[in-house]
Computed example of a mutant assay.
Amino acid sequence: MRRYGEAVKPGQTYRPRPGVYAVLLDGRTLLTTHQAEPRPEFQLPGGGIDAGEHPVAALHREVFEETGWKIAVTRRLGAYRRFTYMPEYNKWAEKVCTIYLARPVLRLGPPSEPGHTAVWMPADQALKQITNTGDRAFLACALRNQPR
Score class of each variant (00 low, 15 high):
M1Q: 09
M1F: 08
M1Y: 13
M1P: 15
R2A: 02
R2I: 10
R3I: 03
R3N: 10
R3H: 10
R3W: 13
E6A: 05
V8I: 02
K9L: 03
P10T: 07
G11N: 12
Y14F: 15
R15V: 13
P16A: 15
P16M: 06
R17L: 07
R17M: 05
R17Y: 05
G19N: 11
G19W: 05
G19T: 13
V20E: 12
V20M: 04
Y21K: 05
Y21A: 15
L25K: 01
L25S: 05
D26Q: 03
D26Y: 04
G27N: 08
G27L: 11
R28Q: 06
R28C: 07
L30V: 02
T33L: 02
H34V: 14
Q35M: 04
A36Y: 07
A36C: 03
E37R: 10
P38T: 00
R39E: 04
R39M: 11
E41K: 14
E41L: 14
F42A: 15
L44E: 02
P45Y: 09
G46V: 08
G47F: 13
G48K: 15
I49H: 06
I49G: 06
I49K: 04
A51G: 10
A51M: 12
G52P: 02
G52R: 02
E53G: 06
E53K: 04
P55Q: 07
A57Q: 08
A58W: 14
H60F: 07
H60Q: 03
V63W: 00
V63R: 00
F64L: 11
F64I: 13
E66R: 06
G68D: 13
W69E: 07
K70H: 14
I71A: 01
A72E: 14
A72G: 03
V73I: 12
T74R: 03
T74M: 03
R76L: 09
R76Y: 11
R76C: 08
G78M: 06
A79I: 04
A79L: 11
F83K: 11
E88Y: 09
Y89R: 15
Y89M: 15
Y89T: 13
Y89Q: 14
N90Y: 12
A93N: 02
K95H: 11
K95I: 03
C97D: 11
T98N: 00
T98A: 05
I99R: 12
I99K: 01
Y100W: 13
L101F: 05
L101P: 09
A102W: 10
R103T: 07
L106D: 12
R107F: 00
R107S: 04
P111T: 03
P111F: 03
E113P: 09
E113C: 15
P114G: 05
G115I: 13
T117K: 10
A118H: 03
A118W: 00
W120D: 07
W120V: 06
W120K: 03
M121N: 04
M121H: 01
P122K: 11
A123F: 03
Q125G: 02
Q125Y: 04
K128L: 06
Q129M: 11
I130A: 01
D135V: 02
D135G: 14
R136D: 07
R136E: 09
A137I: 08
A137M: 12
F138S: 04
C141R: 04
C141Q: 12
A142R: 09
R144Y: 06
Q146N: 04
P147D: 15
